[in-house]
Amino acid sequence: MTGSVTVYCSSSDKAPASFFKAARELGNELARQNIDLVFGGGNVGLMGCIANAVMENGGRVRGIIPRFLEEREVAHYGISELHVVESMHERKMKLVEWADAFIVMPGGFGTLDELVEAITWRHLGHHEKPIILYNIDNFWTPLTDFFNTIATQNMVKPDHHTLYHVCTTLEEVRTFLTE
């Protein structure tokens, strides 16, 4: 059983409603499974939604936000722990360090950066933690298609897909969290 999961996701309040629904459901599930949420510390977008769902269901939430984003992302002061750090690098290191697994929900450039870094670090042997791409409404399909393209061009190994799991339902995500 996983003790804590870092969830990478959007800070946009304009994401599709289906993404917010999935974030609430995932937050509810994490709390039910007694799995701590580790996230970027914002009170907006999918980040705020999942953190609120975990907290509303009696779960534990640890946020990590760089000082320069504390105001911009409206830091979430209603969670179990909020850590304000000095840089994005420090935030990203703690998001990896404090996780037993990663779930990557839809997001923008920051989420993409965190995903690729987690995959790269796993590829290089820096960690062996599961990485779950939560492919809501096929959000990640163009990216996984691109990963296949770079594999056919011999830029990555043909077995690159073993570095991450693609899940389209909460039930599939649950399977990886409870193994």
Rank of each mutant, 00 (worst) to 15 (best):
T120V: 07
E71M: 06
N138Q: 13
A51Q: 06
V85I: 15
T175D: 15
V85P: 06
T169P: 11
T169D: 07
R72H: 08
G42M: 01
V74R: 13
L177D: 07
H89S: 10
H127W: 04
A31W: 05
Q33S: 03
E29P: 00
P158S: 14
L46V: 05
V74Y: 08
R91H: 04
V85A: 10
L82T: 05
S12L: 09
D159P: 04
F68N: 13
I50A: 01
Y77F: 11
V85N: 08
E172I: 05
G107T: 05
A51H: 07
D100F: 09
H127N: 11
G108N: 14
G3C: 10
R91K: 00
E172P: 02
H83C: 12
H160C: 06
M93S: 13
G27Q: 01
P16N: 13
M1S: 14
L133P: 03
E25Y: 04
A17E: 14
I65Y: 03
W98L: 15
V38Y: 12
S12T: 07
L112I: 04
M55Q: 10
G41L: 06
M47I: 00
L124D: 02
Y8G: 00
H161A: 15
G40E: 07
F19D: 01
G3K: 13
G59S: 09
L115K: 06
S18D: 13
F39G: 00
F20C: 10
T120L: 03
K157S: 15
H123M: 12
N57W: 05
E81F: 10
E25Q: 15
D145G: 02
T149D: 09
K129A: 06
G45K: 07
K94R: 12
T120A: 08
F146H: 10
L95M: 14
N28I: 02
E179W: 06
G48T: 00
T149K: 12
M105F: 03
N57D: 10
G3W: 11
R72M: 09
L115A: 05
H89I: 08
G41C: 10
N135K: 04
T175N: 14
N57T: 10
R60E: 11
V96P: 00
F20T: 11
G58E: 12
A99K: 09
V44C: 08
F176S: 02
R24Q: 11
I119S: 01
L26Y: 02
T6K: 08
R174H: 11
F109Q: 06
F109M: 14
V61I: 06
Y8I: 01
P106C: 12
E71Y: 04
R24P: 02
R24L: 02
S18T: 14
V96T: 14
M88R: 00
T111Q: 06
H160V: 11
C167N: 13
R67E: 15
H76F: 11
I35W: 08
H123Q: 15
E71I: 11
I50D: 00
E86L: 10
T162L: 12
N52E: 14
V5D: 01
T120P: 01
T162Y: 08
F39Q: 09
G41R: 09
